[in-house]
Amino acid sequence: MRILVVEDDDRLRALLATTLAEAGWEVDEAADGRSGFGAALGGGYDVVLLDVMLPGLDGVTVCRRLRTAGIEVPVLMLTARGQVASRIEGLDAGADDYLPKPFDVDELLARLRALTRRTASASGPLTVGDLVVDPLARRVRRGDTEIELTAREFDILELLVSRAGEAVSRFTILDEVWDGETDLKSNVIDVYLASIRSKIDRPFGTSTITTLRGAGYRVDAS
């Protein structure tokens, strides 16, 4: 998952970049509104983390111009101004969420997870070969065969399929599906993956999820 951090405070931008990278994000940075707008305009980001008070172009203007240009990437705005009027201004400009400074890092990560889940659901069913995962209906089928998964199994499979072609670490699965509450040394992921494979692969003589030793798991994009 790629995120663009647009923040003029060097220390905060560095902290955010480090925190997000540790959480499994691929991070690009911009220190002012004009460079942030140019980077976001190029596309390819899953989320833009956008400060309001920026040199060059302020964050509200950047967000408004992105929407005018047809860029629908989710935008989470940050600001030291916590007033209701300021929040309304950002949301009216097209921001998807708003977080006033100072903020808790865990809350920031939770809001980013919520934004990416919302985006995945809005984009419609996810397809890998003849496997179809529908986030809105929470249904899975292989060809014409419906497959019953538990709620947790569905969340894991949706995460992996939404990132088809990418290595998804155990940490990322624990962070996004369990909100980081489960011990990384636990074999809980292995148990769930074995159950998922027994339902989506084994009856059909196929293999969808590859275990990457030391790196996590990957669903092949083909």
Results as ranks from 00 to 15, higher is better:
L49M: 00
L50A: 01
L50K: 02
D51P: 05
V52E: 02
M53S: 08
M53G: 01
M53I: 08
L54I: 10
L54H: 08
P55R: 04
D58F: 00
D58I: 00
G59D: 03
V60D: 01
T61E: 15
V62H: 03
C63E: 03
R65Y: 05
L66A: 06
L66C: 05
R67V: 07
T68H: 03
I71Y: 00
E72F: 00
V73R: 00
V73F: 04
P74H: 02
L76S: 11
L78E: 10
L78Y: 08
T79S: 15
A80H: 06
A80N: 11
R81P: 00
R81N: 13
G82A: 15
A85M: 03
E89F: 01
E89W: 01
E89V: 02
A93Y: 09
A93K: 01
G94P: 09
D96F: 03
D97F: 07
Y98P: 10
Y98Q: 07
P100E: 02
K101S: 10
P102G: 13
F103H: 13
D104E: 15
D106C: 02
E107I: 14
E107S: 09
A110K: 10
R113Y: 14
T116P: 05
R117K: 12
R117Q: 15
R118L: 14
R118E: 15
T119W: 02
A120W: 05
S121N: 11
S121K: 15
A122H: 11
A122F: 07
T127N: 12
V128G: 04
V128Y: 09
G129D: 12
D130K: 11
L131D: 05
V133E: 04
D134S: 11
D134G: 09
D134K: 05
P135V: 14
L136Q: 13
A137T: 10
A137Q: 12
R139E: 14
R139D: 07
R141M: 08
R141L: 08
R142L: 06
G143Q: 07
D144S: 14
D144M: 11
T145Y: 05
E146V: 12
I147Q: 04
I147G: 06
E148W: 03
T150R: 09
R152P: 02
R152V: 14
R152W: 01
I156D: 04
L157D: 07
E158P: 03
E158C: 06
E158Y: 02
L159D: 06
L159G: 03
L159C: 01
V161M: 02
R163D: 00
A164T: 02
A164C: 01
G165K: 00
A167Y: 01
V168S: 03
S169V: 06
F171Y: 09
